[in-house]
């Protein structure tokens, strides 16, 4: 039996005296589309940074397809495509050159398909330094999609896209999930998660305060649940 796509085991992260993530235990199976929501500062980006190997947990461990991210980062990244909130790119390359490099590193094909999905086709040969923020995000997304990774981690990756591109990307993510990939989409826009995800995990003050199937919620119920849980958190 194959290992779960993502496992957080008792993960805690402290920044000095500030506890950003507080004992998160989470298992995401393969073929799941999971939304991660929470208020600003809830710990979403810290969780994703730890998941992608950019931050080390103060306690606990994180596995991607059975590989400990912090013991074998390269091994974990082979299973993982990630788009951080502010993606770093080589400004002096064109998107096509950058994606070709990523494809070579991953031993992947499908560069043109990735460009088409993200709507970068016409601008693929311009230097990235001339791109707008939205186009930079599309480039990072195209790089994450290359090689059909088993796990996709997207930090606010859809919200910055124009509506036609967002629709195509959502459809592609759904196709990947149906084919067995796992998508973890972090956002603070509840409607986005409600529209695309099967399951939603809510973080508040670094803790998981809700983990529910989207189908079990009434239409529009996610927002009220979100506000309810936030209120409960505030009340202690």
């Amino acid at each position: 039996m194959s290992a779960p796509a993502i496992v957080f085991e008792g993960v805690r992260k402290d920044y000095g005296r500030v506890r950003a993530v507080d004992r998160v235990d989470l298992t995401l199976p393969r073929g799941a589309f999971v939304g991660l929501i929470g208020h600003n500062g809830a710990g979403k980006s810290t969780c994703l940074a730890m998941l992608t190997g950019l931050l080390r947990p103060s306690e606990g461990r994180i596995l991607v397809c059975g590989v400990d991210v912090h013991v074998d980062p390269r091994g974990a990244l082979r299973h993982l495509g990630a788009v951080p909130e502010n993606p770093a790119l080589f400004d002096h390359l064109s998107a096509r050159e950058f994606l070709q490099f990523v494809a070579d590193v991953r031993g992947a094909s499908g560069l043109d398909a990735a460009l088409e999905i993200t709507g970068l086709g016409e601008d693929a040969d311009r230097l990235i330094r001339e791109y707008s923020q939205g186009m930079r995000r599309k480039t990072a997304l195209a790089a994450a999609l290359l090689g059909e990774p088993e796990v996709l981690v997207l930090d606010e990756a859809i919200n910055g896209l124009d509506p036609p591109s967002a629709a195509v990307v959502k459809a592609e993510l759904r196709r990947r999930v149906d084919a067995g990939a796992t998508v973890l989409l972090s956002t603070h826009v509840v409607e986005t998660v409600e529209a695309v995800a099967d399951r939603v995990v809510m973080l508040a003050h670094g803790r998981v305060v809700a983990d529910v199937d989207v189908a079990s919620l009434p239409p529009g119920g996610m927002e009220s649940m979100f506000l309810e849980r936030m209120q409960a958190e505030r009340d202690g």
Partner: peptide, 14 residues
């Protein structure tokens, strides 16, 4: 170096 921020998200050969 500036390349680290880009490359650290991919399974590059260190």
């Amino acid at each position: 170096g500036g390349a680290r921020a880009v490359l650290q998200l991919h399974p590059v050969d260190p």
